[in-house]
Amino acid sequence: MVSASSLLLPSSVRDLASCVSDGAVRVACTTPASTLVAASTAGSSSPATLSVAVTYRATPLSPSSPPLLLRLTWSHSPLGPPTLSFAGPAASSPAVLLRRRKGTRSLPSDDQQHPPLALFWDLTAAKYAAAASSPEPVSGFYFVAVANAEVVLAVGDLAAEFVKAKFEGQIPKARFLPVSRADRVVAAPNAMHSARVRFAEGAPEHEVSVGCSTTSGGSEELWVSVDGKRAVHTRRLRWNFRGNQTVFVDGAPVDVLWDLHGWWFREQPGCAVVMLRARSALESRLWLEEEAAAPGFALVVQAMKTPP
């Protein structure tokens, strides 16, 4: 099974543990939006989103079946509409590109620990946000995965209707929820990237925005906002290119970590990584073993100057 601590996140994010110490953690509450957000967004643009990868943890109803980590990746295609890839629970299983807009596919298991999967999807009527460049659809689609005669993943506004019609309501449904989201974007100067996420099961959905802007004096600033409220504001990024801060969302701690070293000091394409990850308790530490065993939801924004 894929390690829960890795969450199928980019290696650059996992390497943040060696760059940011727990002693540097600061705690702050989100404050009302100030002129920073207005000034940053006034002349900003939306970066081009190369891909959106969402990892789900499915807990089958059978107590003998282990949890499954399943990943969907939405990507732009240079030759046509966005594409969809799927990665199963086995660490050795490569991602499978679902080339057709609608279809079914069976994925056999490579070992006894993981069950074979049946995939069903339909993107023929998928709709995308008009003002965004994201390859992730917002409506008009479904993706369903079935294992051991049980729905282990159902994504899209048409998923429930498909399951009801396909299985006549006679198939059980596992408990599943997203545990990470990784957005890869190409960011122009003063660009801002936004994503809608839930940091905990049953919690409200929030719009998280990450932006980098240049002041009139030529200094670079990084800011992160939650629902338009400033949560993080870091100045002089060429000195403060790595760091972390703890904020509170819905009364619970969320760690914000950033690493902009690659953006400033490496050759093209140059990469900056910002991660927001929910923590199980204020007393815990992000990289302790017990926290990694049952990590909270993580949002990762990986920004590059040019396409890879």
Rank of each mutant, 00 (worst) to 15 (best):
V151E: 00
P204V: 03
Y56I: 05
G262F: 06
E168V: 06
D157W: 08
V2F: 05
F176Y: 15
T83Q: 10
P60L: 09
W239E: 14
D157C: 09
W263V: 02
A126G: 04
G262T: 07
L119G: 06
A182G: 04
L72P: 04
S139I: 06
H76Q: 14
S62W: 10
M1G: 10
M192I: 09
F141A: 01
L222P: 00
N240F: 12
F265C: 10
P94T: 10
L98H: 03
L98P: 01
V232T: 08
A159Y: 12
R277C: 05
A231T: 07
R101L: 09
V2P: 02
G169V: 11
L61G: 14
T30C: 15
T30K: 13
A145E: 06
R181Q: 15
A278L: 02
S44I: 07
A272C: 12
A200L: 06
H261F: 13
A154E: 01
L98F: 08
F141D: 00
E291I: 12
V197G: 05
T73I: 08
A159T: 08
L257E: 04
V13F: 11
D157K: 06
T73W: 02
S6R: 13
S45A: 13
T214R: 03
A38Q: 14
A90I: 00
A200N: 03
S11Y: 08
H76D: 06
F143K: 01
S12V: 10
L16K: 02
G88I: 03
L97Q: 07
S5T: 08
R235W: 07
W239M: 10
D259H: 07
A17D: 14
A154H: 03
M192K: 05
P10E: 09
S216Q: 10
G23N: 14
L288Y: 11
L36W: 06
E150F: 01
A231P: 03
A48N: 08
Y56H: 15
P89H: 06
D259R: 03
L153G: 02
D259A: 05
A252V: 04
S6K: 13
R14D: 11
C212A: 12
S133Q: 12
N148I: 03
A160F: 06
R101W: 00
T30H: 11
A203L: 07
P178I: 08
R230N: 12
P308Y: 11
P116Q: 07
R71V: 02
F86T: 01
V20A: 09
V155H: 09
S12I: 06
L79I: 10
E207K: 12
L153F: 08
E168C: 11
A87E: 11
A278P: 01
P63F: 14
T59D: 13
S139Y: 07
R277Y: 03
